[in-house]
Structure formats: structure tokens, C-alpha cells
Simulated scan of single mutants.
Amino acid sequence: MEDIASGNHCTVTEFFLAGLSEKPELQLPLFLLFLGICLVTVAGNVGMITLIGFSSYLHTPMYYFLSNLSFTDFCQSTVVTPKMMVNFVTEKNLISYPGCMTQLFFFLTFGIAECYTLAAMAYDLYVAICNPFLYNVIMSYQTYTSLISGVHIIGVLCASAHTGFMIRIWFCKLDVINHYFCGLLPLLKLACSNNYINEMLILVFGTLNIFVPVLTIFTSYIFIIASILRIRSTEGRSKAFSTCSSHILAVAIFFGSLAFMYLQPSSVSSMDQGKVSSVFYTIVVPMLNPLIYSLRNKDVIVAFKKVIDRKH
């Protein structure tokens, strides 16, 4: 660490990332575990994007949203996982101040984009199940491209606001981030200056970026369930439920861990608990999503078999 004097303040030019665990005997097993997760995540998400891209059978809004989810998950994992893995094989995992702010920006961009992508997918399911005859009219090319663009614009705007106000904060003396990446809460714990605006941004944006997507998802599913219950055939009901099951599982895992991390009062939230829940939505969820959608989705399985048969 280097200290630069500036009046009564000093600032840091680099941080130490404490990582997941400081126990020496756990470093190699954790490295191998997360290396495996990283490889599965990259293969799963890149594979899903490629499969959807090359299978005309999957060229529908539903799968374009899934492709966008895979892109977001892939980016999210590459922002966080490689730096965390460095921590397992080095004594002190340093990250420069600009590097830390860059990681924070992209972590927030893709994390927020994932919230809204899951909401857009719920709306798409609602249209598909509740208005199947109007699906192609409602979910036109303009509609889903606007939704996907909107998802990423919201992510960039919120991340820019958070990162912009984080850059204004003074960090001094304490330079060890008690986490495996540069997150909002771990960074704020090191602040020497007033961080009231940052805390308000976390509360407002955090609530908004969880509440709006969750409300969209919840409302969509109220109409979806009501529509499914009106289906008379058992086969029709089970087909409709199986269409939604992958999305419900992805939503439950992602928003559950996210809410656990960010919607606790600071007095009761433990940073070690936060690390565990962070692992779920930054590392485990990006790995699980392509597995959930590929193993539980008949269209994806059929498209995959067609690609394999074409190669033979």
C-alpha cells in the first residue's frame, strides 16, 4: 500500500483482498473447487449462447432472453472468479484502486442486468402462456430488443452512479477488503469520509432493483398460475408448469441470496455470512443457470441432439 497525503486525509492506491478463507490448508482445495466451477460456468454459458445462435429451432424471444442471461452470467463470473482464484495461490492478493473500481462497476452492471433479465423472462413466459395466439405480435423483434437493451442500460446507469459516488470517498489506513472482490458493502466499511449518500444509494437502488423485478415476476406468475389452472387437460398443465419450473428455480436461487446479502440491517449482517451468500449469486448461480435450463428444457435437449447428429 502507498499513502498519499492530501491535507488531513490520505488515500490508498491499492487494496488487499482477504478472500474467502485465510486457512492455509483450505487454499488448494478451494482453488481446485472454484477452478472446476469456473470451467463448468464458461462451458455451460458459452455452450448455451452457441447452441441458441446456431439452432434456428431456438430462434424465438424466449431463447434470446436465455442467451442474454447466459451472456450476463458469463460476464459476471469472469469479473469475480479469476481474481478470487488468484487469492488462493498468492500470499497477498493485491488489487489496484482503479482495478477495484473497475471490478465494482462491472460486477454491479451485470448483477443488476441479471435481475431485470429474469423479470423480462417472466414477462415473456406470461405472454407465452396467457396470450399464446398473440405471442408473436406482442413479443415482436422490437419488443424483445428494447427489453434486452433496457436491461443493460439500467445496469450501466445504476453501476455508474454507485461507482461515481464510491470514487469520491476517502479510504485511509485500513486497506484490507474483507471479501473476495470489490463489493459495495466491504468497501464502505473502509471509508474514512462521510458515506451517507452511498448508503442511501444502496438502500434506494437495492430496494428498487430487487422490488421492481420481483414485483414483475410475482405479478406475471399470478396470471400464469391462474391461466394454467384453467387448462383442463393434465398433460397441458404439466407442460405449462415444466416451461416455468426452470425460471422459478433460477429466480429463487438468485434473489434469495441477493436479498440475504443486501437487505439485512448492518447491525445484524456479518461479512462472513455475506461472503457465503455472495458465492451463490456471483459464482454458483452463473454455473447453475445453463445446467437448469439445459437439463429441464426439452427444446434445448432436442436442439443439442440435432447439433450432435449434424456433426456425425
Rank of each mutant, 00 (worst) to 15 (best):
V46N: 10
H9F: 02
L26D: 12
F223P: 00
N68M: 03
Q103E: 12
R310I: 08
I52W: 08
F133H: 10
C182N: 09
D175Q: 09
M271A: 13
I167N: 09
F171Q: 09
V151S: 03
F107E: 02
V42L: 13
E114T: 14
S227M: 06
S277D: 05
Y63D: 00
V307I: 10
P82T: 08
I292E: 07
L203R: 15
K173F: 07
E25G: 07
L39D: 03
F211T: 12
L108I: 12
I153D: 05
F218E: 12
V151F: 02
G150D: 01
G36H: 06
V284Y: 12
H162D: 06
L32C: 13
P186D: 03
P61E: 04
L104C: 11
F54R: 13
Y196A: 08
I49K: 11
L174M: 14
A128E: 04
P24C: 03
V279K: 01
T219K: 13
Y116G: 06
C100R: 09
L118D: 07
G155V: 01
I217T: 10
L291M: 14
K92L: 13
V12F: 11
L288Y: 14
K239C: 05
G274V: 11
N131A: 14
P24W: 06
A161D: 12
I217R: 09
W170A: 06
D175W: 10
F16G: 10
A250C: 04
L30R: 05
H312K: 05
A250K: 02
I138N: 00
A128L: 06
F34A: 08
A43R: 07
T13Y: 08
S257D: 12
T81S: 14
T90G: 14
F304K: 04
D309K: 10
F74N: 15
A43H: 07
N297R: 09
M139D: 00
T207V: 15
T207L: 14
H179I: 11
C182M: 04
L208P: 12
A120M: 10
L203D: 15
I283V: 10
H152D: 01
V79I: 08
S6L: 02
Y180M: 14
I138E: 01
V46L: 08
T117Y: 15
V212N: 05
I224W: 01
I52P: 00
P213A: 15
